[in-house]
């Protein structure tokens, strides 16, 4: 087997990844370690100057799509039942704070860690994905560019093991 071709391909792929890694987020106070989710590959491989928070357009944008996402979730037959009796304005506030902080903004999330927050709800993987899809639809409806949408997802994805099956 000729080893040059696979080596070239592998090297090109790694170079492509390195060259295209764009913006990092800042974990302002290291709270990622505290809150049961670890820093995503996206965060670790990116190198640029402005944070995802800035590129999203700040807190206003995040508030808008969080608001929209929660409204969609409350009418989503697959998962709405998990939100019975929940204080919705407080949920929206905490989600906004959480995403703001993860995206490198000047917020401190002070809600529960993900495991405690979802304890005894027995959330399934399908339900977690349903929430992700509502966030995707909300971001698109609020004209968040597709590239930034994926970077927000990259911040939410690591929460999955802490959220499901608790």
């Amino acid at each position: 087997m000729n080893m040059i071709k696979p080596f070239t391909i592998a090297t090109s792929l790694v170079a492509l990844l390195a060259a295209c890694g764009t913006v990092p987020t800042h974990d302002v106070d290291g709270s990622a370690e505290v809150k049961n989710y670890e820093r995503s590959l996206y965060e670790r491989t990116s190198t640029a100057d402005s944070s995802l928070y800035d590129r999203l357009g700040g807190r206003d944008t995040i508030e808008d799509f969080v608001d929209d996402a929660v409204e969609r979730i409350l009418v989503n037959d697959r998962i709405a039942h998990h939100f019975d009796g929940i204080d919705i304005p407080e949920l929206k506030f905490h989600l906004t704070e959480q995403i703001c902080q993860l995206a490198g903004g000047p917020c401190i999330y002070e809600g529960m860690d993900m495991e405690s927050a979802h304890f005894a709800l027995d959330i399934t993987a399908a339900e977690f994905n349903a929430l992700v899809e509502d966030f995707q639809r909300a971001m698109r409806a609020n004209e968040v560019p597709y590239g930034l949408e994926n970077q927000v997802l990259a911040l939410l994805a690591p929460m999955k093991p802490a959220v499901i099956r608790q």
């Binding site: 990844l17 996206y42 491989t45 997802l153």
Partner: peptide, 13 residues
């Protein structure tokens, strides 16, 4: 799958 990488796109290797 690398979410949001590169350039905000999702890449599968």
């Amino acid at each position: 799958v690398f979410l949001g990488v590169p350039a905000g796109r999702n890449l599968l290797l």
